[in-house]
Design a protein around this nucleic acid. Structure first.
Length: 919
RNA sequence: GGGCGGGUAGCUCAGUGGUAGAGCGUCGGCCUUACAAGCCGAACGUCGCAGGUUCGACCCCUGUCCCGCCCACCA
C-alpha cells in the first residue's frame, strides 16, 4: 500500500466492479422475502451534464440506499432521465442557430428527429457520471420520460383526467414567452425583484368636451389595446365623468370611462387607470366585470400585430419607445416618475413574459390538492425538515389551475383530436371513427405538447409499470419510501407527484419527502454558468488545471468578470480530491440550511480524511499481515486490555451516533461522528497505544490487540461505506475475513450491540489516562521542554481507581509523554518539589519539578489565575443567590458547589505558585 | 404586501434552558519508522441590537436592524 491514497484509479475500478457484479439490481423473485426499500431518482435532464446539484442528490440518496441495502433490504433505486421539454428544445435550437437555422427551417418532424439524435449522442452520459460518484442505482431499470411505456402512461393519465373533468380547455389570459413562443405555467415565471422602472403618465382627451383624464403605466405600448379607463365610483374628482368616453389619440376608438372599486385605488397616482384586458391580469378581470372587448396586440414573437395601427410590426420594446414619442409629439405626455416594480421573466429563456389571451389546456387543481394536503396533515407523508410543511400547505391551499399545454415540439403529444369540419374536441389515444358532433371522419391532432412536469408528476409509478397494475415492480416497490430532492422543486415536482400519485394509485407515492438546500458557491451565491461560479464535480474529483476550468467556463458563456473570479479563486486549478471526499463534504452540511455554500477547503478536509483512513488502514494491515488474524465480524469475547475495551466501547458509541444521525437524516451528525471517531480516537489514541501492545512479549495481549484492531477497522469501514463507498471497498477487500460477501456493499451494516461493547468503566479510566497525558504534554509545550529532554512527573490522588489506572498504564503513559512518572503517597509530598509546574486534574494533582522558570511561566500562571477568578466570581454569585439554591435541581447546585471548591483551591495554588516564582 | 430562513471565533458553519463547539486559518514546538494531506500544544467569541419571561437565556417571548429566499395582478 502506498503512503498516499490515490482515488481516481481506485474509484473507477470499483465502479466497474459494482456494475459488472450487478450488486444494485433489485429483486422481483417470488422467494425473495426481504423488506423492500424504494427510492426514485429525480430524473436529470437527459442531455444535461452533471453539476454539483446532481452530486448532492446522488450523495444523499446513495447514502440512504447503500445503508438500507447493507441492512438487508431489497433495495431499488430507480434511475432515469427527463426529456426536459423546453430546456432541451432551447439547447437544440441554439445549436441550430450556430448553423444559421431555426427549427422552422427544419420543420417539426426533422427538428424532433434532430433532438432525438442529440439525445442519443449525449443522453445517459449524466447517469454514467452519477455512477462515477458512486450512485448505486439499478441501471437495469433505467427510465426515460419519453420512452414508449412512459409516454403511454402520460397519455393514459391525460385521458383519464379529461374524462373525469379534471382537464379542460379554456381561453383566458396566460403567460407568454415570446422567445420560446410558448405559454408557461405560473411556476415557470420568475419575478425579477425590485427593478427600478418608469411610471409614464399621459392624458386621454375627454370625448365631446374639454378636459382630459391622466393615466399612468409602466408599459405605454399597451395603451394601443386599452378598451376602458377606470375610475373609482366615489372619487369626487371624477364624478362628472361617469358614463362618458375618452378618445384614443391615434386609433379610431372611443373608450368608455368605467367605475370600478376593485381595480382602482383613488389614493394611487391620478386615481384613473387604463384598462387593457388582453394584456394585464387585473385588467382582464376588470374587463370581464364590465364586458369590455379584449384587443390582442401581440404576435407570438412579441411584435405588434395589425391592431397596433402604425406601430404594427414593431417589437414590443421598440413600440414602447415609439408610443411614448408619439404621445410626446402630440402633447399628451404628462411626464414620468421612477417606479420600483417587479418584472416577470421566463425561467428558461429569461425574456420578459407577456400576459396574452390564448386557448390552452388546464388541470383543475383543487380536487387533486385536497387529498394531497390531507396526506401531509395526517402524516401519511412526512416532510423533512418540517419547516417546509407550512410552505407546502400555503401553496396547496392557494393553488392555481395548471396550464399544461406548450407550443413546443419536443414533448408528449396531447391525445386530443379536432374534427376538421366542426372543430369538436375528442380526447382519446387515437382519433375516433366519426365525429360525435357532426359525423365527419377527418381529424387533426392537437399540435401542442405537454408541460414536461406533467410526465414528471407520474414518475414514481410510471417508472414502475403503471398503468399496468399487474406490473411486478409496481406491486412490490410501490409506494416508494423516500423522495429526496432540492426544495426548489417542491411545487414543480413534489407536490404534483403527491397529487397525481394519490389520484391514480390511491396511495401516496412516497412516505417521506427529504428536502435539501441548494448548493451555492463559497460566497453563498447561486451557481450559474454566466456568473462562472459553477464548480464541475468531476473537476473536483479528478482535479483540473485552471486553464481547463477557464476554457470550460468560456465555452459555457461565462462573462469576463466570471473568468476573473475563477482565476482568482482557483489560481492553481483544482487538486484531485476523489468522489469519497466530495461526498463526505456534501454530507457534512446540516440539512436544515437552505444553502450549501460548498467550499473547496471543506472538500480538502475530507480528502485529508480519506488519506488518514488510508494510512490508518495501512498501519493496521501491516501489523496484521502474516499473523493469521481474521476478521470475524464480532469483537474479542472478553478483552482484558484497557485500550481494547475502551476502543470497543467507543465503537459502540460511534455506531449509535452514526445510526441515529442517518435515521434522523442528519448526514452532518453522522459524518462528524465517524470522522472524529476515526481521527481523534482511533488514530490519535488507539493506534498510538497499540504500538507497544502489538509488540508485547505477552502473546495473549498481542493477540487480543490484533483481533480488536482488525475488528474495529473492519467495522468502521462498514460504518463509513454508505458515505465513502470507494475507499472503504478498497481497504475492505484487503482484509482477511472468515466469511463475507464479495463486496462491502452487501456486508451487514454495523449495530452497536453486535460490533461494539458498552464499557463505561473503561471509558472513564481512559479519560483519566488521556487527561494525564495531555496535561503533561501541555506542560512540556509551555515550558519549552522538547521531547528529547526527559522530565519527571509526580502525582497523587486520593482515589484508588484513578491511582490503579495510572499505575497499571504507567508504561503507556511514559511512552506517550516521554516523562518518568512517580506516584507519591500524600499530597504534602508534592510540596517538596519546588519551583515547579503544578497541575490539577480532579481528583488528581501533580507536580513537574525542575522546569525552567521564566517570564512566560509567570504570564501563563497570571492568565490562568485571571480566568479562575472570573469563573469564581460567576459561581459565587450564582451560589449566593437564594433563589438558585431553592429552585435549581439539586445536582446542578451540587455541581456548582464542587466547582466553587475546586476553583477556590486552584486560585490558592496559582497564587502561591506565582509568589514562589523568583523575581 | 404576505410568508420563510439566517445573523455564534478571522472565514465557513454546528449547537443546547444550567461553565460556548468543529473544520479551515493564526501562533509555538515536532521529519516520534501509518500518515507533513501528518504529529504535539496554544490563542481567539459580552452567541446582530433592545427589552421581557426565568433562580439562570446564545437557546423561550416581544420589538428592532441587517442579509437571503419564496409567494403575490397594484396601474
Amino acid at each position: 500500500m502506498p503512503p498516499t491514497y490515490s482515488p481516481i484509479e481506485t474509484e473507477e475500478r470499483w465502479s466497474r466492479f459494482w456494475e459488472e457484479g450487478e450488486f444494485f439490481t433489485a429483486s422481483v423473485a417470488h422467494d425473495d422475502v426481504r423488506p423492500t426499500y424504494t427510492l426514485v431518482m429525480p430524473p436529470p435532464n437527459v442531455t444535461g451534464t452533471l453539476h454539483i446539484g446532481h452530486a448532492c442528490r446522488t450523495t444523499f440518496e446513495d447514502v440512504l440506499v447503500r445503508r438500507k441495502r447493507m441492512q438487508g433490504f431489497n433495495t431499488l433505486w430507480v434511475p432515469g432521465t427527463d426529456h426536459a421539454g423546453i430546456a432541451t428544445q432551447v439547447v437544440v435550437e441554439r445549436q441550430l442557430k450556430r448553423e444559421g437555422l431555426t427549427r422552422h427551417d427544419l420543420g417539426r418532424e426533422r427538428f424532433i428527429k434532430r433532438i432525438w439524435e442529440w439525445k442519443e449522442q449525449s443522453g445517459g452520459a449524466i447517469l454514467k457520471q452519477i455512477q462515477r460518484l458512486g450512485g448505486s442505482c439499478d441501471r437495469s431499470r433505467e427510465r426515460f420520460t419519453m420512452e414508449p411505456d412512459l409516454s403511454y402512461a402520460v397519455q393514459e393519465a391525460f385521458i383519464r383526467l379529461y374524462n373525469e373533468g379534471l382537464i379542460y380547455r379554456d381561453t383566458r389570459l396566460v403567460n407568454w414567452d415570446v422567445e420560446s413562443r410558448t405559454v408557461l405555467s405560473d411556476l415557470e415565471v420568475e419575478t425579477e425583484q425590485q427593478v427600478s422602472g418608469e411610471l409614464f403618465d399621459f392624458a386621454y382627451p375627454i370625448e365631446g368636451e374639454e378636459g382630459e383624464l391622466v393615466v399612468s403605466t409602466t408599459r405605454p405600448e399597451t395603451m394601443l389595446g386599452d378598451t376602458a379607463v377606470a375610475i373609482h365610483p366615489e372619487d369626487p374628482r371624477y364624478l362628472h365623468l361617469h358614463g362618458k368616453y375618452v378618445r384614443h389619440p391615434f386609433l379610431d376608438r372611443s373608450i368608455p370611462i368605467v367605475t370600478d372599486a376593485i381595480l382602482v385605488d383613488p389614493e394611487f397616482g391620478t386615481g384613473a387607470v387604463k384598462v387593457t384586458p388582453a394584456h394585464d391580469w387585473n385588467d382582464f378581470e376588470t374587463g370581464k366585470r364590465h364586458g369590455l372587448p379584449q384587443i390582442n396586440l401581440l404576435n407570438p414573437d412579441g411584435t405588434l400585430n395589425e391592431e397596433a395601427g402604425e406601430f404594427q410590426g414593431m417589437d414590443r420594446f421598440e413600440a414602447r419607445k415609439a408610443v411614448k414619442a408619439r404621445l410626446e409629439a402630440i402633447g399628451l405626455a404628462r411626464g414620468s416618475t421612477k417606479h420600483m416594480m417587479t418584472l416577470p421573466r421566463s425561467q428558461r429563456s429569461g425574456t420578459i413574459v407577456e400576459p396574452i389571451i390564448s386557448t390552452q389546456w388546464f388541470v383543475r387543481m383543487e380536487p387533486l390538492a385536497a387529498p394531497a394536503i390531507e396526506a401531509v396533515e395526517n402524516g401519511t407523508i412526512q416532510i423533512v425538515p418540517e419547516d417546509w410543511q407550512k410552505t407546502y400547505f400555503h401553496w396547496m391551499r392557494n393553488i392555481h389551475n395548471w396550464c399544461i399545454s406548450r407550443q413546443l415540439w419536443w414533448g408528449h403529444p396531447i391525445p386530443a383530436w379536432y374534427c376538421k369540419k366542426c372543430e369538436q374536441v375528442h380526447v382519446a389515444a387515437s382519433p375516433p371513427q366519426t365525429c360525435t358532433a357532426c359525423g365527419n371522419d377527418e381529424f387533426v391532432q392537437d399540435e401542442d405538447v405537454l408541460d414536461t412536469w406533467f410526465s414528471s408528476a407520474l414518475w414514481p409509478f410510471s417508472t414502475l409499470g403503471w398503468p399496468n397494475t399487474e406490473s411486478r415492480e409496481l406491486k412490490r416497490f410501490y409506494p416508494t419510501a423516500d423522495l429526496e430532492t432540492g426544495y426548489d422543486i417542491l411545487f414543480f415536482w413534489v407536490a404534483r407527484m403527491i397529487m397525481m400519485g394519490l389520484h391514480f394509485t390511491g396511495q401516496v407515492p412516497f412516505k417521506r419527502v427529504l428536502l435539501a438546500g441548494l448548493v451555492t458557491d463559497e460566497r453563498g451565491e447561486k451557481m450559474s454558468k454566466v456568473k462562472g461560479n459553477v464548480i464541475d464535480p468531476i473537476d473536483v474529483i479528478q482535479g483540473a488545471s485552471i486553464e481547463s476550468i477557464l476554457a470550460k467556463a468560456k465555452q459555457a458563456g461565462a462573462k469576463d468578470s466570471a473568468l476573473k473570479y475563477l482565476k482568482k479563486t482557483y489560481p492553481d486549478g483544482l487538486a484531485t480530491h476523489g468522489a469519497d471526499a466530495l461526498r463526505m463534504a456534501l454530507m457534512s452540511y446540516a440539512p436544515g440550511s437552505r444553502r450549501i455554500a460548498l467550499s473547496i477547503k471543506r472538500i480538502e478536509t475530507y480528502r485529508n480524511f480519506t488519506n488518514k483512513l488510508w494510512n490508518a488502514s495501512r498501519f493496521s494491515l501491516m501489523n496484521l499481515e502474516g499473523t493469521g488474524t481474521q476478521s470475524t465480524g464480532s469483537p474479542p469475547v472478553n478483552p482484558e486490555v484497557l485500550v481494547n475495551r475502551w476502543i470497543l466501547a467507543r465503537l459502540a458509541t460511534v455506531i449509535e451516533g452514526v445510526t441515529q444521525g442517518l435515521d434522523e437524516y442528519r448526514g452532518d451528525e453522522a459524518s462528524s461522528a465517524v470522522y472524529h471517531f476515526l481521527w481523534d480516537e482511533f488514530c490519535d489514541w488507539y493506534l498510538e497505544l497499540t504500538k507497544p501492545l502489538l509488540a508485547s512479549d505477552r502473546r495473549e495481549i498481542a493477540v487480543e490487540t490484533r483481533q480488536t484492531l482488525m475488528h474495529v477497522l473492519e467495522t468502521t469501514l462498514r460504518l463509513l461505506h454508505p458515505m465513502m463507498p470507494f475507499i472503504t471497498e478498497e481497504i475492505w477487500q484487503r482484509i482477511d475475513k472468515t466469511e463475507a460477501p464479495t463486496s462491502i456493499c452487501l456486508a451487514p451494516y454495523p449495530v452497536a450491540a453486535v460490533e461494539g461493547r458498552a464499557d463505561p468503566e473503561a471509558v472513564r479510566e481512559m479519560e483519566h489516562l488521556k487527561s494525564f497525558v495531555v496535561k503533561t504534554r501541555t506542560i512540556r509545550a509551555e515550558h519549552d521542554l522538547p521531547n528529547s529532554r526527559s522530565i519527571d512527573v509526580y502525582w497523587h490522588t486520593p482515589e484508588a481507581q484513578v491511582a490503579r489506572v495510572l499505575e497499571e498504564q504507567q508504561a503507556l503513559i511514559e511512552r506517550l509523554t516521554g516523562a518518568t512518572i512517580h506516584r507519591v503517597k500524600t499530597p504534602e509530598e508534592l510540596q517538596h518539589h519546588t519551583a515547579a509546574a503544578t497541575f490539577v486534574l480532579e481528583p488528581l494533582r501533580g507536580v513537574v519539578p525542575d522546569v525552567v522558570d521564566s517570564e512566560r511561566e509567570r504570564e501563563r500562571l497570571g492568565r490562568e489565575l485571571k480566568r479562575v477568578e472570573k469563573d469564581l466570581a460567576i459561581v459565587s454569585k450564582k451560589l449566593g443567590n437564594p433563589s438558585f439554591i431553592d429552585r435549581a435541581p439539586a445536582e446542578v447546585v451540587q455541581k456548582e458547589r464542587t466547582r466553587l471548591a475546586t476553583l477556590t483551591e486552584q486560585r490558592a495554588k496559582l497564587s502561591s505558585a506565582i509568589a514562589a516564582l523568583p523575581a
